[in-house]
Amino acid sequence: MTKTSLPPEEKKVADKVVIFSKELIILLAAFAVSLFTFIFIAFRVFYLDKTGADEKAFAFARSIVNDSTTKLMEIVTFFGSHYFLIPANLLVSFYFLLTKKSRYSIKVSAIALSSVLIMLGLKLLFNRHRPLIPLLEPARGLSFPSGHAFMSVCFYGLLMIIIWREERPHPVLKWVLLILVVALLLFIGFSRIYLRVHYFTDVVAGFCIGSFWLLLSSFLIDRIRPAGLKQA
């Protein structure tokens, strides 16, 4: 029995359905892992009062403290601060407006604003005070989850999603950029522990809930099709 082939138009639709199904499965898995890890960390820290990981992380950070590393960590942590991320979000959003990619401009703005509100709400909810042993100047505000980790994942992660979905650059360059972004995120997270303005669990929780919100909000915005809005 010969296998019947679908007409070109139906084949395109079928391919899109398969791709969408795979993306949905990956997204659901990422949602579940990120949210579960965040809940697990919060349960251990606030209900079981388990802080061994925080103490070990501080001990390791103390063992590598020197002037050169401290200066490097100050630079790295700047790229996860609101001093950098607020203008960066505005510039990226404005860039997409100029290039007539309204979908991306709306996505950048919506995720940036919503993530700030969620982060502030979570900090007030958990009300965890910062470490009392800052390496340099003490940071203001509450500690859990790390705002640097949360906001950095939302901004840099969204840029990577956008780059990954574009036809250019070359796939090899996309992987190089992805690795560099992941490395930057890890360094930003570690800088907060090194400078002793966040606990290890603050940083991991920030990465987890930031990833969860980035993927969820990005998925929801992609499903919305406001009248007259051009799809990027």
Rank of each mutant, 00 (worst) to 15 (best):
L135F: 03
L85G: 02
I41W: 02
S93V: 04
L120D: 12
G228M: 05
F36E: 01
A14E: 14
L220Y: 03
E167G: 06
V181I: 15
A61V: 00
F40S: 12
G80E: 11
L173V: 11
L136K: 10
F46A: 02
A112I: 01
L98A: 06
F155C: 06
K22G: 00
L113Q: 07
V33A: 12
F40V: 00
P87F: 13
Q231D: 10
L85A: 06
V197M: 04
L48R: 13
K11G: 06
V182Q: 04
V197S: 02
L195I: 08
A53N: 08
A61G: 02
G141K: 04
A61F: 06
V182G: 08
F187K: 01
L6W: 07
A139D: 09
A14V: 08
L186T: 02
F43E: 12
Y194A: 06
L113Y: 07
R192Y: 05
L177F: 14
R192D: 09
V13M: 09
S115N: 04
P134A: 06
F31C: 03
A59D: 13
V13F: 09
R128K: 12
V17T: 07
K11A: 15
C208Y: 01
K12H: 11
P138Y: 06
G121A: 10
G189R: 08
S105F: 07
A42R: 00
P87I: 07
L90S: 12
I224N: 05
L215E: 07
T4K: 14
E166P: 00
V172T: 10
A183W: 05
L98M: 14
I179V: 13
T201I: 03
L178E: 01
A112V: 00
M73R: 04
G157F: 02
I162F: 08
W175P: 02
K174R: 08
T51N: 14
R225L: 08
T77A: 09
F20I: 00
F144A: 10
A88G: 13
F126P: 07
F96P: 00
W213R: 02
R168N: 14
S218P: 00
L184H: 06
I39W: 13
S191G: 07
P138G: 10
I133P: 00
L97M: 11
K12W: 03
I179D: 03
M151H: 08
L117P: 04
S105Q: 08
S68R: 11
S102P: 00
R196S: 13
K11N: 13
V45F: 05
P138W: 10
T51I: 09
R140N: 13
L135Q: 02
E166S: 14
P131A: 09
R225S: 13
L216S: 03
K101G: 01
S5W: 10
I133Q: 11
I118L: 15
L214V: 07
A139W: 04
L132V: 02
K22C: 02
H129K: 05
I118Y: 11
A139K: 05
K56R: 13
I162A: 04
A14W: 09
D222Q: 11
I25Q: 04
A57M: 11
N127H: 15
A61D: 04
L35A: 15
K3S: 10
R130D: 09
Y83G: 10
L91G: 10
R103C: 01
I106P: 00
S68N: 12
G121D: 12
Y47S: 12
S115M: 08
I19E: 14
G80A: 12
E23M: 09
I39H: 08
A32R: 03
V13R: 12
T69K: 05
F78E: 13
K71P: 00
G147I: 01
